[in-house]
Amino acid sequence: MSLSDRLHPGINLAGTDPESHEAAEEVLFGFWIFLMSDLVLFAVLFATYAAMSVQGIAAGPGPAEVFDLTAAFLETLLLLLSSFAFGFALLAMKYRENRRSVLAWLLVTGILGLAFVGMELHDYYVMVTAHGATPQVSGFLSAYYLLTGTHALHVSSGLVWMAIMAIQVAMFGFDKRVKLRLMRLALFWHMLDVVWIGIFTFVYLFGVTS
């Protein structure tokens, strides 16, 4: 099999760095499977939310009363833009191998991601203070906080991972290990977009029309 036949998910390095490309096949496939198991986890959370948001409202507020669509829309933009920025970081890694530009793009990604988490925390704050909508109020809110909270936790751990990768880029430059890790982090980050789009659609858009 020629090198360029061995494609794997995410950015491929066949053209620029054959050695890393060869090593990437197994590692990225493994990470792809991990993401799949992570998606199963989210699927289960979505299913729980679907049941709870209809049957679990009890005496608490319903979705339409507590969600702020504008905030959710801005969060969507932030997260998608941060993924976009990460794409540039990887392109810079692949074609330029330039520490500065990769670090700069990672910084942009990180700031956007941080802003996303910050806004989400603010959402929670508003929900709790303005509507008294804590997770202890009803099954629906429990499911809501668990679903969005798990996603936020993923984003936050992605940010920690990103900080560590920034240090490693600065320390080690672009050796094989660092490249493969950045490639995996990118997949992780993009997957969180996909999950968020699910949340935006099924939780927020459906929610405000309910």
Partner: peptide, 11 residues
């Protein structure tokens, strides 16, 4: 939380 409790929407 109220995922599986008897009251408050748990199931």
């Amino acid at each position: 939380f109220h995922f599986f409790t008897n009251g408050a929407g748990g199931n």
